[in-house]
């Protein structure tokens, strides 16, 4: 058993706001909830989660909503800005103040960076950041940590590769900063111009993290325990040509995996395009759908802890 922590009323904006012991406690809480089986349906009975999604995201929103339903709670919210008062010019502050009257907890995704932190200034209800622009995505990160622990038993000594759009890929930014607290090696592979942003690199250097950066995986693939792949996000590019050029620059398929460790774990935050071939799905190495399930289980832990129910 790890040390227990009270999260009641806390916001989940950035994993950097939490100690390593608190994060390990969340991992243990996720396990405890799963062990409860059907009894978990009593945990959040009568509570309401608002999912406020100004930006399209089927997966993260459904994951939050499924998590709340599995805890026995209820859900309300919106899934795109055009159907909200924002389209009529309402400020973020006013939306948050209003929803805080209706819901016990909120999960939000917003295209502007820093929006979740800004929202906490106007809410006495816990807010979980479901992604603020290309900035942070802590619930994904915590789900990824949970995935690594469940799949590998521990984070210690893992050699993890990150492949794809590492500039706009917010899941990567949050995850690598958190991983830098643990005894892991990180190797970043990205097409030119899509490498990790300065503030992430600076943060890793300041923490003394072990990491390398290159455009291809040659020489490193055979050493990796985990390969975390990300999608090139079309919506982040100004031109179609630029998007297509970057998109087609890498692909994980069975042929490539022959050069990797036999038990390499392939992760992806989903949705994917063509960066992982579909024939990889049948391999035991394909951990990305299990990752989506672990992500939901971690969201159950986050909702329960922030509401003070666990």
């Amino acid at each position: 058993m790890t040390e227990s922590f009270d999260f009641k009323g806390r916001h989940i904006i950035d994993t950097e706001d939490f100690s390593t012991a608190e994060i390990l406690h969340l991992v243990e809480t996720a396990d405890r909830i799963q062990e409860m089986g059907e009894n978990a349906l009593q945990i959040a009975k009568g509570k309401i989660l608002a999912t406020l999604f100004w930006e399209p995201s089927t997966r993260t929103r459904l994951s939050f909503e499924a998590a709340m339903f599995k805890l026995g709670g209820n859900v309300l919210g919106f899934s795109e800005a055009s159907t909200t008062s924002s389209a009529k010019g309402e400020t973020l502050a006013d939306t948050i103040k209003t929803v805080a009257l209706y819901a016990d907890i909120m999960a939000m995704r917003h295209p502007l960076e820093g929006s979740a932190l800004a929202a906490t200034r106007y809410s006495d209800r816990p807010i979980i950041n479901g992604g603020d622009g290309a900035h942070l995505h802590p619930s994904q990160t915590l789900g990824d940590i949970y995935t690594l622990v469940k799949e590998r038993g521990s984070l210690d000594g893992l050699k993890i590769g990150f492949l794809g759009d590492l500039l706009f890929g917010r899941t990567i930014h949050t995850l690598v900063r958190l991983l830098s607290r643990f005894d892991v090696e990180m190797h970043f592979f990205s097409p030119e111009g899509l490498n990790i942003p300065d503030y992430v690199r600076n943060s890793l250097q300041a923490k003394g993290a072990v990491f390398t950066e290159s455009e291809d995986m040659n020489g490193q693939l055979a050493n990796l325990d985990v390969l975390y792949v990300t999608r090139i996000q079309k919506e982040r590019f100004f031109s179609e040509e630029e998007y297509l050029r970057k998109k087609n620059s890498y692909r994980v398929d069975r042929e490539l995996l022959e050069k990797a460790k036999k038990d390499i774990l392939i992760l992806h935050p989903l949705p994917r395009n063509e960066e992982i071939a579909q024939d990889v799905d049948d391999l035991p190495n394909a951990g990305y759908f299990r990752q989506a399930d672990y992500g939901m289980q971690m969201r159950m832990a986050l909702i329960s802890k922030c509401l003070g129910l666990m």
Binding site: T91, L92, A93, H110, P111, L112, E113, G114, S115, L117, A118, R121, D132, G133, A134
Partner: peptide
Amino acid sequence: NPKCVTVKETYL
């Protein structure tokens, strides 16, 4: 940063 929340939500 043009994508920063403080740029669009100017009351912040």
